[in-house]
């Protein structure tokens, strides 16, 4: 058996999103159906047992889809700029839950067809009232002329995936010094992304950072982590990795400074324009 896990940076990011106990009720409420399935089986009612098992599975699938929807929603809410989730997972979960509830009422609890449909609808309504609908509108913040919303979303998403790669590599390097250094670098990279989120015009100025430096950092860290994992690191390699990290950190600092200075420049220009306007009044 290999220990290798599938490389899936987008899910790695999503797995770090905490939704707490939200959605736990959806897993707990259908438990009696599972107990029912077991009792039916013990009584020898194979068909009823299979029906109850299938309906329980339906409830669980709805709960899992809902949890995924909650995670996407919570990540969407955390970000200043974000694309709305492509697939309405919460609505999908609500529909599946409503159908399963209706079927459970009809097949296992002896409700009539009309009453079962009504129960399904009430469950759907309850879900929407309790958990809300999926976010549908992109959060475009103050994206202005010069950059398109899609461009900003794509650049930020790609940068976050690279940061997740660095983070994953950091966790596999068991060296306190490198660990602290990489932590600082990740924090600085996140700060630069936050600046771009605040003012998407910065994207044009930060393109080189996002494409070249962040990518380079991810590649170097990943390959060092691989060598480290095989216990094949040498003193020379450690020293040069340390040097690379130093220069990466200073480049990140410079990039941040550059963005801040440009903001200052923007501010200066605005003040000059205002001064000219005031003179002409």
């Amino acid at each position: 058996m290999t220990k290798a896990t599938r490389y899936d940076p987008e899910n790695q990011i999503l797995n770090t999103v905490k939704t707490g106990i939200k959605g736990t009720l959806l897993f707990l409420m259908p438990l009696p159906v599972l107990i029912g399935a077991v009792i039916h089986l013990l009584k020898g009612n194979v068909f009823s047992s299979l029906t109850a098992g299938a309906l329980f599975a339906g409830f669980m699938i709805a709960a899992v889809i809902a949890r995924h929807g909650f995670k996407l929603e919570s990540r969407f809410k955390q970000k200043k700029l974000a694309k709305a989730p492509g697939m309405p997972f919460k609505s999908l979960a609500a529909t599946l839950l409503a159908i399963t509830t209706g079927l459970t009422a009809f097949l296992l609890s002896d409700y009539g067809l009309l009453a079962s449909i009504l129960i399904g609808f009430v469950a759907l309504l309850g879900f929407y009232m309790a958990y809300g609908v999926d976010p549908r509108r992109d959060k475009t913040g103050n994206i202005s002329l010069g950059v398109s919303a899609d461009e900003v979303f794509q650049a930020l998403e790609a940068a976050e995936i690279k940061i997740a790669t660095i983070e994953k590599a950091r966790k596999s390097i068991r060296n306190i010094e490198f660990d602290q250094h990489l932590k600082r670098i990740i924090e600085k990279a996140r700060a630069i992304l936050a600046m771009i989120e605040d003012d998407p015009k910065d994207l044009n100025r930060a393109r080189k950072f996002l494409k070249v430096y962040l990518d380079g950092t991810a590649r170097v860290t990943e390959s060092y982590a691989k060598t480290h994992g095989k216990d094949a690191t040498t003193e020379v390699l450690d020293t040069s990795f340390q040097e690379v990290l130093d220069s990466i950190e200073s480049t990140f600092d410079e990039q941040r400074e550059k963005l801040l200075q440009n903001d200052q420049l923007d501010l200066d220009v605005k003040i000059e324009v205002l001064k000219t306007q005031l003179k002409h009044l």
Binding site: L25, L26, M29, P30, L31, P32, V33, I35, G36, I39, H40, K43, A52, F59, L97, T101, T104, A105, L108, S109, D110, Y111, I119, G120, V122, A123, L125, G126, F127, Y128, M129, A130, Y131
Partner: peptide, 30 residues
Amino acid sequence: MPYIVQKVIGFILLSATVGLVSLQVLFHLS
């Protein structure tokens, strides 16, 4: 309708349907 009231009603409706229907599966057995 205030958000919290809407949420509470939502949870009541969910429990009254999903919760009760699945409990009735058990009652139906006995």
